[in-house]
Structures are given as structure tokens and as C-alpha cells.
Design a protein around this nucleic acid. Structure first.
Lengths: 198, 198, 198, 198
DNA sequence: AATGAATGAGCCTTCATTCAT
DNA sequence: AATGAATGAAGGCTCATTCAT
């Protein structure tokens, strides 16, 4: 029973199915057929809406990155101070929609994909740069440029590391603890820097 | 021309080939044939020495974990103080044999594999526990237990995060910077804790 | 914006598109979608106007045969003598509309199709018979029946052979040379026969 | 029950199966599966011995061309006079191994393939050049160069045309008639040329 | 009249794995 | 010990075709 204007709906269904299946498998080695079926359509239709399996994967990756970027952007809008901006980035990173086992697994898979896929690498580079710029914007008013850069790098690394480790834990991720670790890292860094400056 | 006593040599060749190919691909989706060929033998022989592809993969993973554990163990032997022990763990983690693009990619792949493979998960759990125990051993004399646990967790996360991020960078990983970030994280944490205790 | 009376136009567009695509590919293995798109419509519409892919192909074949037959018929009308009739058949066969790379390729494809498709074989048989009858009509007044038959067969073969060979040549077909070869074949045959009769 | 040294046997089986199936279908649109099964093996093995479907097709084409070239070469060895050489080429072209319905159909299919496949075109060009050179070698002693060239072209065309037409006839090909047509074409041409020279 | 939506069937190809030698 | 031979299973993808709208 074909209806018109299905394209966006279908595409979104496929992307959602791809995230969950890739996340569950911890690998891109997921049959397109499975993705299509979980999205409620025939495999052929998936090929119709995306350009082959790689198309599905890249669009899924793009979706994940965009989603994260948008959440960060919205959170930053509501932040008043530099401190609040950093906090916004931290808490968004561990918000329910990001800090989910399958989503994080999909993230990691995409990280790995970018080892061997230039388009994926480009996509990831854009996101990485944007996150860095957001962090720098907030940190530059709290620390000298060189320090700010190292802080940005360490915070980003800490976030990624927590992603990996916590989603692997049997009990599942603990957003509260994740946020606490990040905040402590930042507050201690800023405190030490302030002390040294005196 | 078959030779006797080739078993350990052949197995090691296969494991090395597996690490580099898996690392290059950023995925376990690597034909056994390719691994065997790079290891200088026929695919059938690879099956003879390991029990199927999964055998090769698990043994490769085990090798990676053991290698790391051994390096850590040796470094700890040479460390005199708690501080030195922590430092030993950090610098070993970013030593040339670990902090290599392909090796790290293989690590991540195995992390992901453990999402869906109980044997892989068990393997990883053993290593995780050992690393944690090493860190705790060093930290317990520097901080109260609860603090030590958080510190161990944050350091482990930071290391993993640096792994991910730096090996993806176009310029390749920078061990010096990686070590500096970790040291700073620890020193600031310990300093802050000391200040608060006063 | 659907219009009325489009049927013949649409059908002709599809046939033209089919000829060029089949000719380019040198094969019937051409997606209906491509034919429809080149004809400026959706694939579904192509199915509406013809009954499936086979319908398109058979109609295209029929079109090609009819076109050729009509050109021959018109040329014969203008021919005064038996010699002129033969000449008319020759020059029509290598006229611009027939002796074109894609058209000839399509011809060959249809020849082959008739190996395995009875309807196509029937179509081709009708045309073959008509051409033969045209040739015989002209030749019977120039040679005894048995000789005329062999001449008809050899001329028809020569024409087909030139079709194949010349359209494959890198420089493209040379109608002048093709016509000269056929004329020479005929004139020599008739001359020899005349000499023998004396 | 695997045996060693199967490669040439398997390859030949596949080529034979390909010729007959392609000939029967009058098209390259033949599943590799069918070819493999007729050759008595699994489809996967066909891919192992040739490099994909295109490999099978190109090797089959090469085989056909080589076979023909070899037969021509052997026949030419046994020919004493220029006349005999021409005759050898003619009778070889319509020998039982060449003038067979499926074989000829396969030839035509390959002709068409070369419309769109550069490798196939190259293969065909080599064979065409060799045949032409053989013909020219025989004809140059019987006619001036320019005439010899036209004769070579017309004979080659006539042969190809007879191939097409006769293999399509319901009764199947008639080698005797085919040879007679070609001989007559040549004898008449040479006779006319001799008469004109006087 | 015209088309986007949708699918089942089938094809090419790869790959892990087994077996006889 | 070592390998070429061989295959079943599965995956990506295309395409002719149908159906609502």
C-alpha cells in the first residue's frame, strides 16, 4: 500500500534500525537485510532509499554526529557562563540519548570505520573540530591558550574513554558517575592552574 | 618442505598478521585467507593451527592482552615508589609497542567484539581487573580507598580515550603528549586531594 | 501533466530509446528503467504502454524491420530496371538510417534473440522472406532460377557480413565502400554468368 | 575427492560449457551457476579458476579465437599454391568445429560484446588482423594490392554473413553450400580481374 | 495519464571450512 | 607438515514488475 512522501520516514526508520543493529553487533558486519527487516521493509527498498550499504552506514554515522552536535548546540544556548558551557558539554555527552549502550557501540564502530574509509574520516573530522572549537570557546576565558588546548584535549579524551569503558561494564553505563569524573577533572585542572598563577 | 617444530612459529606469524590486518581494516571482517597469506602460509594451514577463524581471533586478542600485561608487570618491577608505579603504568601504555596505530585499532576492535562475544568479554574482563588492581595497589597508599577507585577509573578512561583519539589523528599518535596529559591528570588530582586534606 | 493522445508519441520515444541503448550495449541486457528514462518517462509508464520488457523489445524489433522494409519498398518503386532494383536494395541497405553503428548492433542483437525466442524468430523470418522475394524478383530476369537463388543468398550474406564488420571498425562504417563491394560482387557474378552462357 | 592438477581440466570444462550455453541462449546473459553446473562443478569453483564472470567470458572468447587461428594455421601449412591457401581458409571457416550453430552464435555474441568491452574489442582486433594478413598473403600474388585488399574484405564479409544467416536457418547450416558460395565469389572475382587485365 | 512506492526473485561474488593427497 | 581442490551458505545488489494514488 504505497503512500507518497515516504522517503524521509523510511530513511529515518532505516537509520534507527542501523544504529541499534550495529550497536548490538558491535560491528558493521550486519546484513542490510536485517536492517531493512527491522525497519519494516524489504531489503530492496533500503537500497532504493540509500545508495548501497555504504550509503546506509555513512548516513547513519552522519545522523549520529548531527544529533550530538545539535544537542550540544542547544545546551550551549542555555549556558550563561564559561563554566556552564563546559558543564553543558559534559552533561550532554552523557545524556540519555547519547550515553546508551548501542549508541556508544555504534560510535566506536564508526570511529574504527574511519580508519579505512576516507568519507567516514572526513565526517568524523568535522565533528571533532566542532567539538574542539566549542570547548576552546569556553576554555579560552579560563586559561591561557596553550593550557586551554591541552585541557580541551584531555577532556575530550576522558569523555571518549568513559564511553568505551562504561558501556562495556556488565551493569551498564552510569551517567552520574561519568559526569562526576569529568567535572572533577575540570575543576581540579582549573583549580591547580589558578593556584599556580598566584 | 614441512619442518618439525614449526607450530609456535606458525602461530606467532598468524597472530602478527592478524593484528596488522585487523588493525588496518579497523574490523574483524578480514578474510582468513589474507591473514594466512600475509603470514606466509596457506589458509588451510591456518585452520590446522587454530581452530577456525574465531580461534585465530581469540588467540590474537589473548596475545595482545598478555603482551600488555607482561610489559606492565616488568615495568612495575622496576618501580620503587607508588608514584613511580603509576608512572610506569602510564608510560608502558604509551610505549612504542602499544601506542601504534594498528595495535590500538585492534584493541578497539576487540573491545567491540566483546559486546557480542562472551569469550571475548571474559578475556577482556580479566585484563581490566588486572589493570585496575595494579592501579589500586599504587593509589591506595596515596589516597583513601573511595578516592583511589575514582582515580583509577578516571586514569584508565583517560588512557583509553587518548588511544582512540590520537591514533585517529592524521599526524599519528604522539606518545610524549599522551604521557604528559596522563601525568598532569594524576598530579593535579593528587595535589588537590592533598590540599583538601589539610 | 498528462495529455491525451500521447500513446503513439510515447511508444515511439520508447522504441527510439530502446534502439540506441540496445545498440550501445550490444545486448538486450538493458534495464527498462534506463530505456524509460532516456525516453523521458517513468519506468512504470513504459509498462503501461508496452506489455513488459519483452513487449518493448519485440515492438522495437518490429519497428526496425518495418522501417527497413518500407525504405526498400519506396526505393523499389523508383527503380526502372532489374539492375536498378538490385542497386536500390543495395543502397537502401547502406543508407544513413540503416548503416548506423547502434542500429546495426541492434539488428545483430535481434538476430541472436531469435535463436531462443520463437516470436522473434517469426518476425525475422517474415523479413528475410520479403527481402529474398524482392531480390528474386529482380534477379529472375537476369539469371536462371537456380543461379538467381544462389545470387540472392550470397548478396544477402555479403550485406549482413559487411554490417557486422564495418560497424565494428574503429573508424566507423563506410557506406560508399560497402556499396561498392556489393555492386562489384553482383556485376562480376552477372558478367561471369553471361560469359558462360555464350 | 580433490585431485591435483585439475586446473587445466576444470578451465576447459568451463569454457566448453560456456560456449554451449552462450550459444544456446544467443546471449551472455547466462548465469555462472548454469555454466558451472554444466561443467560439473560448483559455482564457487568457477570463480576460483577464473576471475569472475567476465574472466570466464573473455577466456572463452580467447579460446574460440585461438582455436580458429590454429585450424587456419594448420590448414595453411598443408596448402601449396595461393589458390589452395584461399581455399584452405574458406574450408576451415566452415569446418565442422567452426560452423556449428552454438559456436557461431557464441561468435556473434562476442562480436557484440566487443561493442562495449575494450578488452573484447582488443581480442577481436588481433584475430581480425591475423585473418586479414593471411588472406592478403595469399591474394597478393593473384592481384594488385588495392584489389587484393578489397577482395580480402569482401571474402571476410561474405564468410561472416554466411555465418549469421545459415546458423539461423531452421534446417541448420549447410557447409557445402557455404563453401560453394565463397569459392564462386573468389573465382568470379579473379576471373573478372584476369579478363580486365588482358 | 502518470508516478513513487514496494517487493520477490535471481545473480555475482566472497568466504569459512573440509578433505584428499 | 602442508596445500590445492572443492563447496554450502550467505551477502550485496539489480531489476522486472505491480499497485495505490
Amino acid at each position: 500500500m504505497p503512500k507518497v512522501g515516504m522517503q524521509p520516514v523510511r530513511r529515518q526508520s532505516l537509520i534507527n534500525a542501523a544504529i541499534s543493529l550495529i550497536g548490538e553487533a558491535g560491528s558493521l558486519d550486519v546484513p542490510v537485510k536485517d536492517i531493512a527487516v527491522r525497519a519494516g521493509m524489504s531489503p530492496a527498498l533500503a537500497f532504493h532509499y540509500f545508495d548501497g550499504k555504504d550509503g546506509i552506514i555513512l548516513e547513519t554515522m552522519r545522523h549520529l554526529l548531527r544529533e550530538y552536535s545539535n544537542e550540544i548546540r542547544d545546551a550551549l544556548k542555555r549556558a550563561g557562563s564559561p563554566q556552564a558551557r563546559i558543564d553543558a558539554i559534559i552533561s550532554t555527552s552523557f545524556g540519555a540519548s547519547q550515553f546508551d549502550r548501542n549508541t556508544v557501540a555504534a560510535w566506536l564502530v564508526f570511529y574504527l570505520k574511519s580508519y579505512s574509509s576516507p568519507p567516514a574520516a572526513r565526517l568524523l573530522a568535522v565533528y571533532t573540530a566542532r567539538l574542539r572549537s566549542n570547548l576552546m570557546h569556553a576554555l579560552c576565558s579560563l586559561a591561557p591558550r596553550a593550557e586551554a588546548e591541552r585541557l580541551a584535549e584531555s577532556l575530550a579524551s576522558l569523555i571518549d574513554g568513559i564511553y568505551i569503558r562504561q558501556t562495556l561494564r556488565p551493569g551498564g553505563p552510569d551517567a552520574k558517575e561519568a559526569i562526576a569524573l569529568c567535572r572533577q577533572h575540570m575543576s581540579r585542572a582549573l583549580a591547580t592552574m589558578a593556584a599556580n598563577q598566584r
